[in-house]
Design a binder for these strands. Sequence first.
DNA 1: GTGATGCGTTGCAGTTTGTGCAACGATCAT
DNA 2: ATGATCGTTGCACAAACTGCAACGCATCAC
Lengths: 253, 253
Amino acid sequence: MSQTVDRALSILPLLAEGPADLGQVADRLGVHKSTALRLLRTLHEHGLVYRQSDQRYRLGARLFALAQEAMENLDIREIAHPHLVRLNERCGHTVHLAVYEEGEVLYIDKVESRYPVRMYSRIGKPVAITVAAVAKLLLADLPEPERRSVAEKLDYPLYTARSTPNAPAFLRELEKVREQGWATDLGGHEESINCVAAPIRGADGRVVAAMSVSAPNVVVTADELLTLLPQVRRTADDISGEYSGRTPVKEAP
Amino acid sequence: MSQTVDRALSILPLLAEGPADLGQVADRLGVHKSTALRLLRTLHEHGLVYRQSDQRYRLGARLFALAQEAMENLDIREIAHPHLVRLNERCGHTVHLAVYEEGEVLYIDKVESRYPVRMYSRIGKPVAITVAAVAKLLLADLPEPERRSVAEKLDYPLYTARSTPNAPAFLRELEKVREQGWATDLGGHEESINCVAAPIRGADGRVVAAMSVSAPNVVVTADELLTLLPQVRRTADDISGEYSGRTPVKEAP
DNA sequence: GTGATGCGTTGCAGTTTGTGCAACGATCAT
DNA sequence: ATGATCGTTGCACAAACTGCAACGCATCAC
């Protein structure tokens, strides 16, 4: 909507790929060098880009700080955290919390496994949306037309033989998840890793977040992990209750 | 330098404080609502702000993703990480990696303590610059005029009785750190936490990052922690060697 | 040492683009 | 129903952004 701002912001993902000099930025934006310079300067003043010693630009420190603050302002996260820790203390496995936001699912909290073999993931990283158990729960709750349109726009990478292959299969899976009220990922992302997940609902019943417990095969089998389902669901329900009970942002209908 | 972009970017820190509606954003920017709307829309299209269900705006998901990518592009981090892990395996304490960037020092990597009592910190969070051992090393290496000007612009909060009280004291401490080539923070930030830190240097000898080992008093005394200094320095030197050896960004003079 | 090339930077004139206004519509409370 | 509040839209004006061309300053070749 605003050309200048639009151009300026387009610089950020561009620099996310790696440092670039003025000329490269100008070229990829399709603008004159002097224009690119002014945009970069403005970004620089706000700390979003940094000029390294070889004069090239890269993403700046303020970005971390902003992402940091943004994270800490998510109220679900704050409420959920102690519950996640408690669950981790009981079962010992990695516990994740994730939310959906405009086509993406991302982890917003994580409590590390106490076993030596750990799963790779990082807070803020987008989730493998077509296979992750938390993603299924979050997408399953979208209104039908949006769910459909999202599902059709997605890529379906075959991480493993058990990965969701295409949109119809995904939509069927979502329907199932929606009905049963919980979800799993049995080796759909990494051959040896399984997850069970449960939804966290707001006062109006809509899913606002999802949580999961993940563990590699070498620690517990998929069947053993499934025995944790009641615990996971109970924890998610506890969080739902607390979230609906006393949040200043949303109110009951 | 570019008014429009400047205004748009000013919205981000504003939203970092918490969600806000259109009117609030317009007021705090000192512009008309319609202007604020257009800026917010542009930010929205780039995923930097998100419109929550109550119509208020808050920081968006793309911000996490960007911060994430930015982080992964820091080559020092990549090189240092395995060394940090190895050090952590030997001593068990929390290991941090930090860099300096335009007036701020921030953690860019962390390996958690294996002891139950852990220190609070988070990657991306700005460091308590006047007391942290890593900050001392990074600032001590700045050219004299910049060091001085930075030191004079800082606040000197008295976290504890041992916190650096003011600029002259800080500059003296930096001089000392500069000469000895390592630094400590003995209860200057949290009464019960001590750190020892060592610098990581590029091919030209300038300090590009700093690493530290931290532990609370209840686990090891300050004296015991200091016995780790040789290990910390050796690790830092190893990283320096590897960083200077094969980096495509900088070259030896 | 000298000229050439490449890059970032600056001042300027033209005009695209962003701005504020005012009016509209939706939502909610009274 | 009625009024208030807030987000949204179209429009005319002018401010702000753009691209150009020229400059300074490196590095590099010869």
